[in-house]
Each structure stands twice: as C-alpha cells, then as structure tokens.
C-alpha cells in the first residue's frame, strides 16, 4: 500500500458555539484521489482550509508529506496547490501573465515551457494572450487548474472545481485530472456536490456530516453500507437524516 502523504488526527474547528469539524481523523495515500462528500455545512471547505493553513484548527494535528503543517508551512505549501471555483484570478491580466505571476511565486524553473505545456494540456493555448476577464467560466476553471499544477504539486486540493461548468467541460476537466494523476502519481483531495462525479473520480470517499466522518470507503462500499443504489441516494439519506 502507498504511504500516507496527508495524516489528519483529531482535527477540530470550533467557531464560537458552532463545531464545524469535530475530531476527524483520516489519511490520504500517495497517488490516491480522495473524495470528500457531505451536505452544506458538513465541514468540507473548513477541513480543506485547515489543510492549506488558511484557517487555524482549534485542535488536532495535520501532517503533510511527513511534516507538521504548523511548523513547516512554507515547505509544505511549496509542494501542494489548490483550485476552487470560488476563487478567481486577477481579471485585468492575460492568462499568460497570471500564470507567470504564480510561476514566479512558486519559483518554477523554466516557467515559459511549463506554462506552454499546461496551456496545451488544458486546451487553452489559443487563450494565452486573452485578458482573464473575457474568459468563460469553463475557460477560467481550466486556467485555475493550470495554475494549480504549475509547481508540479505532490498534492492537489480541489474544492468543487467543476461547479458551474457545463457537463461537457466538466467531463473534459475530470478526464484531464485523471490523465495527469495517471502520469504523475499526483494525490488529490476532491470535494464536489456532483455525486456522479464523486463516484467517477474518487478511489475512496470520506463522508462528512455535521463536522464528523460518518463513513469512509470506496464509493461501492459506501453505497452498500447505506443501502443506496448510488451516491446521490446515500447523500439524500444522510442530508435528510434518514440513516
């Protein structure tokens, strides 16, 4: 079995009286796509934010690539990356300029070749000199994913990366991510509200509800455990408290 690249122990986050994440523990193995599933307010985004060091946990331990996140933030963050449909890029800069800024930020060697290659992989090379403001949502998502792969991350955190994409572009995006994973052994933590997408993408799923892990396993294991025909049925059962 591949070794763990993310180890989370009793991770807790309280916002005053509200416990957003309650003593969750899990691991992500090298090369694995781990799906994080749960209704709104389950604690998915808060967990990702804690794993990226932008939200401070109330308690627990996060180790990424064998290092403690609190003590080795810079070293860890230079080897991981993030993309979300809820985050954008400077609108007045061109696609190439935006990617160049982030390449410089991550100290990417041979950034020109790297950017050109990623533009080609995501089929956005013709948009190289287009101002970001003029991109469609699907194009912006692909630019954001290209940004997330600039530093050859060992771990990629994707928070609903295909939200607001049409089915065709979303399917293409998933295919690209799977290809990249197959080629590079990239580890991915993935959240989505699209259940079919989660079934398709995830090697393993963590099911969160009210800040706690209520189940973990492969999509098939989870469906069997909750006696659902698909993840959507399982999701609805959990969200409506019928489990």
């Amino acid at each position: 079995m591949a070794h763990s690249v993310v180890e989370v122990r009793k991770l807790t986050k309280r916002f005053e009286q509200v416990t957003a994440v309650n003593e969750i523990s899990f691991e992500i193995h090298q090369g694995e796509i781990l799906g994080m599933l749960g209704p709104n307010g389950a604690g998915k985004t808060t967990t990702i934010q804690m794993l990226l060091g932008v939200t401070t946990p109330t308690g627990g331990e996060i180790r990424i690539l064998g290092l403690d996140l609190g003590r080795h933030r810079e070293e860890i963050l230079s080897q991981v990356n993030f993309s979300s449909s809820y985050v954008s890029l400077p609108q007045s800069l061109t696609v190439w300029e935006n990617l160049r800024v982030f390449a410089q930020l991550y100290h990417v060697r041979n950034y020109r070749e790297k950017i050109d290659r990623l533009l080609s992989v995501f089929e956005i090379a013709p948009l190289r000199n287009t101002v970001t403001r003029k991109l469609s949502t699907g194009q912006l998502t692909r630019v954001s994913l290209a940004k997330a792969l600039l530093n050859d991350p060992k771990i990629l955190f994707l928070d609903e990366p295909t939200a607001s994409l049409d089915p065709d572009i979303a399917d293409k995006t998933r295919s690209m991510l799977k290809t990249i994973r197959a080629q590079s052994g990239l580890t991915i933590l993935y959240t989505s509200h699209n259940m079919r997408e989660m079934e398709e993408m995830s090697d393993r799923i963590i099911f969160l509800n009210k800040g706690e892990i209520i189940s973990t396993g492969t999509p098939d294991e989870i469906m069997k455990r909750f006696q659902g025909e698909d993840l959507e049925e399982v999701f609805l059962k959990v969200a409506r408290g019928k489990t």
Binding site: L52, G53, E74, E75, L77, V87, L89, P90, L105, Y106
Partner: peptide, 18 residues
C-alpha cells in the same frame, strides 16, 4: 484591495507566500 476585488487573496495565501 486589488487582491480582494479579483478574489485572488486565497490563491496567494495557499502559496508559500509569507
């Protein structure tokens, strides 16, 4: 403010930027 207006702040602070 430019980073806020362009919703880019998170991109910056999930990088190794101090």
């Amino acid at each position: 403010l430019e980073e806020i207006w362009s919703r880019n702040l998170l991109n910056l602070f999930v990088s190794p930027l101090r």
